[in-house]
Nucleic acid binder design. Structure first.
Lengths: 213, 213
DNA sequence: TAGATTGTTAATCGATTAACAATC
DNA sequence: TAGATTGTTAATCGATTAACAATC
């Protein structure tokens, strides 16, 4: 019954499996073998079977995997079979982009409110989501069962806010600020560092000739 | 003289080293040993030395690394010692967010234009950057020496555009659409899949108790 | 049943860490 | 010089791939 820890390498791949399975469902595909799936995704069949078997035997010998069932199982593993209440801090372009993203809603990620320190923005609605004053954030989290806080604010503000969020009961921070956040280990941090992403792109462009194999 | 291929695991870490070194410079730190640096960053000193030695001997025995020098060297490795011309496709909130991001400019990533298919948006300026019609994208790329195209459009449009971009001379695609793009191998793709990012966050929140080690 | 394909063990590969001789 | 710390080789660890017996 003891679940041994799953490596982050595997976790990184699950959402991609999930996405492909969703597309297969849309195409009306009912079953798929690890071999077919591997060709579709550009990974090895062995890796797919190994990855899935960390969570249970979802397939059937001689048949393969039931697409819809596997989709749902991976959804459960990822925790998107339930609702996650989110607030977004920073009502700039990035915060608005997140607020306007209906895909999240569909997957159970509900953006309940935006927060900003600019009094001009407070009280207004963006995409039907109200902008609150940053001063109310702690109370709001406690009263509205907020699980995830997305930080789309500058570096210094993010570090500051991370401190304020400790002890409010939030479980995760989705960090868009270009800094690492130091929080107690009961809060999970997922970083989206766009500046690092574009530097990797730059590296791979510049060193592309050498990479040809 | 032959440069052997550097693993993506290492490339992933370089921008983070770069960021920390930038902060050390701002703090006036002139030298640092791999040991001090490892404590600061939360990685092993061994890894730092191994990583850096893939590119050359930047340190000095008994002294450590010169912060400013190392910063510049990593900048060169990442290719941010030169200018990269970028265009952003999709003048929605995401595109605007990228266009408004002064940090990129500072690092040599110059956003030259926005593109959108909405005639209402075409001709207007966002953050001092002009919005062009999507129909002009191929000509614009050829005439303006564009290296990178950021795609902040829906999935289907992104797949479509990726095809149109082949042969224009662009070297990289910064893909924000929730799909994998199939392009010839002379074009590098860097994905920013936010929906996968939030699913990983969800997984790590839900499975956090078990993860305690 | 025979064929197909999984679940799982074993082999390989690659990445990380440890150790230490070289050297500033 | 003596002490510190790198560059680099060797050891370990973990992740990926291959192989195949189990089984639908």
């Amino acid at each position: 019954m003891e679940q041994r820890p799953i490596s982050q390498a595997i976790i990184k791949r699950l959402p991609r499996y999930y996405r492909y399975l969703g597309e297969l469902i849309a195409q009306g595909v009912e079953r798929i073998s690890s071999n077919e799936f591997s060709k579709l995704m550009g990974v090895t069949a062995s890796q797919i079977r190994q990855d899935l078997n960390n969570f249970g035997g979802f397939g059937q010998q001689g048949y393969g995997y039931n697409v819809k069932n596997l989709y749902e199982e991976i959804g459960k593993i990822l925790g998107i079979d339930r609702v996650h209440n989110i607030i977004v801090v920073g009502a700039g372009n990035f915060g608005r982009a997140l607020a306007g993203y209906s895909d999240f809603e569909r997957r159970g990620f509900r953006i309940k409110a935006l927060f900003d320190r600019d009094p001009e923005k407070v009280g207004h609605e963006i995409n039907g989501i109200e902008v609150h004053s940053i001063d109310e954030i702690q109370d709001y989290i406690r009263e509205n069962n907020i699980e995830i806080v997305a930080l789309t604010v500058p570096k210094a503000a993010a570090i500051d806010l991370a401190q304020k969020l400790v002890g409010t009961g939030i479980k995760g921070i989705w960090n868009f600020a270009h800094t690492d956040l130091k929080v107690p280990k009961d809060i999970v941090v997922e970083n989206v560092h766009l500046s690092e992403s574009i530097m990797r792109l730059s590296y791979n462009i510049v060193n592309h000739e050498k990479m040809e194999r």
